[in-house]
Design a protein around this nucleic acid. Structure first.
Lengths: 154, 154
DNA sequence: GTAATCTTGATTCAATCAGTGGTCAATCTA
DNA sequence: TAGATTGACCACTGATTGAATCAAGATTAC
């Protein structure tokens, strides 16, 4: 049930780009430094996200990356699907990456029916959260850094 | 977000053993044939489940495996954790397999806070479902095989 | 004792993951 | 406008993990 490191880095990069949405492009090296991601590895990941039309790039001096759409229009589910593949725990219940499994009768498989519910739960969470939400959540956590009103966190 | 094949086989084996709970031990080869799992691979998996005290075995002629407890007392979450490790998508939100991640400040990480919700959703699903539930679900799906009352499934 | 079954460890094979070295395009500078 | 510099781009490698197999050994029933 794991998200790959690659997928985690992708999401952290989206956060970094989301926080700077509206300004100019951001260099890979800056994202890498801020999020403590290996720079060369991040290059690949952002490149993949470009193929997915989630980010866009500019080359050369003053080049860099930025979101291709408003942060409200990018769900975490979309990012993960492009980087890591299906959200579903087993691919016989995946909607976009369906593949048959080896069980005797898929249509009457009790496990499959349960796994479909797990997929729905995961999907509901990740489909409903956008990069904008991620940025907002991050910002609200940062507030506690200076402000004293973090009773809720104790 | 995937369950490994190993984990899937483990759950299918639990289903097979659950359906025969109460009777004598079941041979690996029978479970393998019924569930279409490579026999040699299944040997490994059942052996791991024995270490987890989820199944118990008997050697020699007329040997085999059976559940070590009533099916109502074995959750799918327990099986998966023993075979595949953490349910959590990233290990910095795992309760039993916690490991720090590389992000700048874990306690104020927006992504982490979202991933914790995903873990809770997954955990809620899998913790709440037992091997008994799995068998019951499977049985109710099998009913439709002969009976005509499967309107709900259309 | 012999056949059937689990037990254990090593081993193969392939796929995926994480990371790296060099190439190409845009901008800046002289 | 030539050349240097910067930063994205592409192809590849090395290591790890996952799935599966092989080959003995141990235990029990008959």
């Amino acid at each position: 049930m794991r998200l790959s490191l690659r997928g985690e880095y992708a999401l952290r990069a989206m956060l970094a780009l989301g926080q700077r949405y509206g300004s100019e492009v951001v260099r890979i090296r800056d994202v890498a430094a801020e999020q403590r991601i290996p720079k060369r590895f991040l290059e690949q990941i952002l490149n993949d996200l470009k193929d997915a039309r989630v980010v866009e790039s500019r080359r050369g001096v003053q080049g860099g990356y930025r979101l291709a759409r408003a942060p409200e229009l990018i769900s975490l589910a979309e990012v993960i699907r492009h980087i890591d593949g299906p959200l579903a725990p087993v691919s016989c219940v995946s909607e976009r990456f369906y593949e048959p499994c080896s069980c005797p009768d898929e249509s009457r498989c009790g496990l499959r029916s349960i796994m479909r519910e797990v997929r729905d739960a995961i999907s509901k969470q990740l489909e409903g959260v956008t990069v904008a939400d991620l940025c907002a959540r991050s910002a609200s956590l940062q507030v506690g850094k200076e402000g004293p009103s973090m009773d809720f966190a104790i």
